[in-house]
Design a protein around this nucleic acid. Structure first.
Lengths: 234, 234
DNA sequence: GCAAAAGTGTTATCACTACACCCATGT
DNA sequence: ACATGGGTGTAGTGATAACACTTTTGC
């Protein structure tokens, strides 16, 4: 590289991850109780600094893996927070990501972090501007999921339509007509019906479906009008 | 502030602005021919480094004002670019914004920069990853404008429906039925019909409209289905 | 048989597309 | 009068929401 830029300020740059999970009942976020400074003992998002030779995407994936042990997780950069005093220790610019994981694949992290799942409807006060980050991430998730088949990332490989519906209902805080819901969902052509049923939730049992991932790549935009007023979300 | 973070890398952080304008014919972007290093003589987006005490939003507004002389311009942060080698001189993370301005309010900048408008369909090679930035900004603009009344920012205070329609047509690269277009647009309740007409474009003359900015704040989400397949855009 | 949840069918309504038509005016 | 672009009317179509109905199975 040539000469460096002169007379310019340089800042630490971090990524923070809002990790969403779904346990079949509630949409949840993963938080950690800080065992390190600053703000020891307070709850925060999982985050870390960007290293010299990695992009923000790489940093987010690395940090997420260190927390969950999982690789190749869905992640999406959604906003960069840059208020000069947002970090009380030193000015730090934070590139925020949200991630979607199957909560059942998550195992207790290597005890290095004290992590815990909280309902998106009831979680503790967070440090810095992390509460604002969570709120914006939640809106982005709602917005994106109206038109993109990303909520599947929160479910196991095999899932039933009633489970998918209750996930949507929890994400949007409403309820849907089951008939209309299943018709719309199936009309996307993204779901492959399996031969077995989940008998846990009812006597009749509900058929499992899998996401057709090939079709998914090319037709995620076919996810039409699942939610009445998507435009009010962003 | 307390002690600083130790052993962490620090980087220069910049903002880059994609400035959109509309001259009644074509959607355009404002580019500058660099009179400074690195990449002297090449075309690039307008950008600059974030100063010690300002947020990215503030930096973007400052930079935009220095280029156009205009304040209170619509601007929206849309993505942060962080590939380690994106800047050839020194690793720099760039927070990218797009802005919408009324091209007629723009006057030649204070000669400090050699700036020029280019059609979004035909503009020169840009330095670094700026071409990618422009492409992503264009997509974001298209996506956002399907559900938010932001394209008005590109027009004068008073504008006609035919002008608005040709703007939409240029942004989306299609044509719309004028009857359906005007009905949908008026049904949002965002437009206030004026008493005078623009006689420039036709013999009959087209009524001017103004944006009802109060209504706009609260009902920008009423901007429904102006474009056939918005979901394929993001 | 009955309760409970899965899943299917049906209809009224509404929004949208396409296209025909009318309007105002400069030449 | 007629060409030009602005603006309105309307029938056919298709998607949607609401809700009634049938299916399956454990108890």
């Amino acid at each position: 590289m040539a000469a460096k830029y002169i007379n310019q300020s340089r800042f630490t740059v971090a990524v923070d991850c809002i990790v969403f999970g779904y346990d079949g009942q509630n949409l949840k976020i993963l938080l950690i109780k800080r065992a390190f400074t600053p703000m020891v003992g307070r709850w925060s998002l999982m985050g870390g600094f960007i290293a010299k030779d990695e992009s923000a995407d790489e940093a987010a994936a690395r940090i997420l893996e260190s927390l969950t042990g999982l690789k190749n997780i869905y992640q999406e950069q959604f906003y960069t927070f840059s208020a000069p005093n947002r970090d009380t220790r030193e000015r730090t610019i934070s590139i925020a990501y949200f991630s979607l994981i199957d909560i059942k694949k998550y195992k207790e992290p290597s005890s290095e972090y004290h992590a815990e799942w909280f309902s998106i409807k009831d979680y503790p006060d967070l440090i810095f501007d992390h509460t604002e980050m969570v709120k914006i991430a939640q809106k982005r998730l709602q917005y994106k999921a109206t038109s993109h088949a990303i909520l599947f990332e929160l479910l196991p490989d095999k899932f039933t339509l009633p489970l998918l519906q209750s996930l949507f209902e929890d994400v949007y805080g409403t309820s849907f007509d089951k008939g209309n819901f299943s018709r719309k969902m199936l009309s996307t052509g993204l779901l492959q019906k399996q031969k077995d049923k989940d008998k846990a939730g009812s006597k009749k049992g509900a058929f499992f479906y899998k996401l057709d991932r090939k079709h998914y790549q090319q037709n995620s935009h076919k996810f039409l009008k699942l939610v009445p007023n998507p435009n009010s979300l962003l």
